[in-house]
Nucleic acid binder design. Structure first.
Lengths: 339, 339
DNA sequence: TGTCAACACGAAACCGTTTTCGTTGAATAT
DNA sequence: ATATTCAACGAAAACGGTTTCGTGTTGACA
């Protein structure tokens, strides 16, 4: 086992000072050609690499980004991470991933763990419990310490920081409009509780499209699932009772379950009943029939978040200006609607 | 913006030395009750938290784990990460995730980035390119430096380190056996190229089950997809020509595609043709019909990997004994086979 | 009154860098 | 011969902790 070599080791071996070694390795003008060559050759030979921790301590920059998200076994979040990773890595940053598992406490603990020097900034999507509670003190504390934060997707307006979202309202609006344009009359919505910022926005878009049309918007055509957990029975009962001819779902899973149920009942998709979901994941692509979805462009979102964060991290100026970037959703047309 | 407070700040305010503050906060016996209370109260008031970087530098432990995997938008890997996260977090470790994107170079770069002090150990699954190349020097270098490594799923026996795998051969064997027991005669296998350690093992298990039976094992009943990319046409042609009555697939996607194709041809699943896939992901669960799979227990694998790594990290002893933990796969029976 | 623990605390080294600010010795200018 | 400049390097502080090893004060005891 050959241990890591340090500046001190090189200095000792070459009988020069540590500062000389450090400067020589940075090709400083201060050092003579001879010495530089000698030092650099030696460093190369022994595969010297500076210790990141020491450097971090010195210049108070870790080149680490903390990402705190509710869940990772979820297509949307993984694509966001990939986007973050991609951008961050290209800029020499590492990504530390922490999972809140939809729990407020875990979110707080994770942030505290990272906020003490481990990272230069946070990229986060709020846990459902946090959004339900409406308690954002852990975020405020961090921003007050001067640590930059970027919120994506599940955000709150109560914290001053950069934000990246897609226009969920618009996405739902366009999807609903699509149904209306195709002559659908009884359009249902399957969503989750309103405290999730995204669900709220999507419901709004759905509602808006209906109100703009001749169709009467009907509260009873909305099914609110109490949690993110799947409750297949609830969906079956709802679809069985309401008999809609089009269903908008706030995620893939609700949609695929719905499709499976109506198919078993003998209905044809999309002729008798059409489906649109949110999230362009693997499920939509390989569902039978394939599912039309409002794509959220997670990877783009991740890249954008990383870009905004790193910009803040690297800017010396302490401007207190924050922006909210709104990405446009796009409808990915597949076989679950007519086309 | 209130900046982070340091020991030095506390020492100055309270007119004691830094060492006293440090000891007081650790409740050292050396310090008087009075002083301890004073210091602790002050620290609490100003919300003092020690700087992780400084501590890392001092005791040469970062409490960070580096995870390098080929891909994250893949159900199996995300479950593994979740398992790692869970265990590591409970032990006070953070997880730094790096993606090799199946590229050898990226794998090397990522490891180099992390190996200079950023992490205490690695948990990895090899990129396909690395397995294809068979070049494991980057791994060897790291282990020679005394940095513990745990390899999972996509491993190599050329590196001395702990390993966690599932018994892929057994999984494929059991699945194939299941087909045979159910009276299937023409059992096909859809896999990827052999350089992937897991595909190789699965092919072996498939082969073994066939050889043990009366059925003649036939090379032409194996479709090797050139890459991890989906080539729907290849699957269609293969299934169209060979007309198997059972298909084992090394992942979910191949299986779901296959199912969709044969359904369009009017075949009934599982009566006319049965399917079993690998990976108990979201796709299998919500496919129509739902897909029977060999579950890989990713979360367990992640936990196990983290456990082994942290044990090595925290053990002072430099025992050079490595173990390979083999997890048992389980068949999750769903509607794509008779039952 | 002198000695010795025990107590409570501080000085300083250390982890591995970077960086500022000397300090040499030699070459050049005066 | 003296002053000035410059090249080439080293000492030391700093980042924020931990830890070892003093050291000064106190009280008890002989």
């Amino acid at each position: 086992m050959k241990a890591k070599i340090t500046l001190k080791d090189i200095a000792r071996e070459l009988e020069v000072s540590i500062s000389t070694v450090s400067k020589a390795l940075k090709n400083s003008e201060e050092i003579s050609r001879d010495t530089k060559e000698k030092v650099q050759a030696f460093a190369k030979l022994y595969n010297y690499k500076p210790n990141n921790i020491a450097i971090s301590l010195k210049n108070k920059r870790t080149k680490n980004i903390g990402v705190v998200i509710p869940d990772i076994v979820h297509h949307f979040f993984t694509t966001v991470i990939r986007g973050i990773e991609k951008y961050a890595n290209a800029r020499g940053y590492n990504v530390i991933v922490c999972l809140s598992e939809e729990s407020f406490d875990k979110e707080v603990i994770n942030m505290e763990m990272l906020a003490n020097g481990s990272i230069d900034g946070f990229i986060m999507s709020l846990s459902s419990q946090t959004q339900e509670k409406g308690d954002y003190n852990h975020l405020k504390e961090v921003t007050e310490q001067g640590i930059p934060v970027v919120l994506f997707d599940r955000i709150t307006h109560e914290v001053d920081c950069d934000k990246v979202i897609i226009d969920d309202e618009l996405g739902a609006y366009q999807a609903t409009k699509k149904f209306i344009d195709q002559g659908k009359k009884k359009i249902a919505l399957i969503t989750t509780d309103d405290y999730l910022s995204v669900s709220k926005a999507r419901t709004k878009g759905y509602w808006k499209a209906l109100e703009e049309s001749e169709l009467d918007a009907d509260q009873s055509m909305i099914l609110k699932m109490p949690s993110m957990e799947m409750d297949e029975e609830a969906i079956k009962t709802f679809l069985g009772n309401k008999e809609p001819d089009a269903v908008l779902c706030v995620n893939e899973i609700f949609a695929v379950c719905g499709m499976r149920f109506v198919q078993k009942k003998g209905l044809r998709i999309p002729e008798d009943i059409a489906f649109i979901g949110f999230t362009d994941g693997v499920l939509s692509k390989y569902a039978n029939p394939s599912l039309t979805v409002v794509a959220q462009h997670g990877e783009k979102m991740g890249e954008e978040s990383a870009r905004m964060l790193i910009e803040k991290v690297e800017s010396e100026a302490e401007e207190e200006t924050y922006q909210t970037k709104i990405l446009e959703p796009t409808l990915v047309i597949r076989d679950s609607i007519a086309h």
